[in-house]
Amino acid sequence: MTDRSAAAAGADAGGKLLERLLDGEPAALAKAITVIENAGARAAQVLAGIQSRLGHALVVGVTGPPGAGKSTLVSALVGELRRRGKSLGILAVDPSSPLSGGAILGDRIRMAEHACDPEVFVRSLASRGHVGGLSSAAARVVDLMDAAGKDVVIVETVGAGQSDVEVAQLADVTVVVCAPGLGDEIQAIKAGILEIADVLVVNKADLPNAERTVAQLEGMLSLRDPGTATVPVIATTATEGHGVAELSDAVEGRAETLGGSARAGKRLERIRQDIADSAAELLRRQLNDSDDDGLRALCRSVQRGELDPEGAARRYLADYMGNKA
């Protein structure tokens, strides 16, 4: 180990990590993410220390089905925001293998253009069993990037059900990306993604069916309740950079409309969600590890058909947690 790294590690041990993180030092940000990700001993200290420094970054969620070209679009968006002088943090979330717990995190493949830019910090996150669920781990990483002084934090996830909604909960602006010509995607969007989108993107707009897809999406949006916020539909060709400036405008515009107090409100809502997720996870662990006679009796009741699982859960909470659930 070199002297310098030994010194750096020593400083970490002395609790300087937080200070260096707030100074925006990339190595400290990276280490802090590791600490948070592993729910390590210093996690609580770091999280407490950054709370007063949050709220600067605009948090943009980017989601959509596989094959829509999300990573390429994110890379193009990063390029445009860099030209506008913004510093960026990018959190790319990929699934862990349910069998091995391992993961291949390949989102940086499409980020080659920014590979050496010190103002672009990229971190890949595997969706492994995080305490409180993925949204909570991701939200904390986003907070760290915010605290480190990033102007914009982009969270990219593979659009597959729950993670879309989780992204929307932690982002100020949610961008849903799809590509033309895939009927299933439109179905998926109908099924719920539409509700979370602040901006809709039809990427690969050079493909034949692009205009039709844009028209279909606009048609669907027009069916929503009057009074819901306008959702722009933007056609992009990320590989060529077409439509990316327009997308950046839409994202930044949406943040302005939202205003500071709305974002602060959203943050509070998110913290509540965090607590709920963590509580659920703690409870789940407690029950799974429990060797309690009462719990065993409840299990048998469910087995005999005397109680349904939810009823059993309510009774457990009432009896053992003093909870009025």
């Binding site: 291949i104 390949g106 493949i109 080659a112 590989t239 060529e240």
Partner: peptide
């Protein structure tokens, strides 16, 4: 005509 970026797959 654009820089050639092959489709690298993990």
């Amino acid at each position: 005509l654009g820089f050639g970026q092959p489709l690298v797959m993990p």
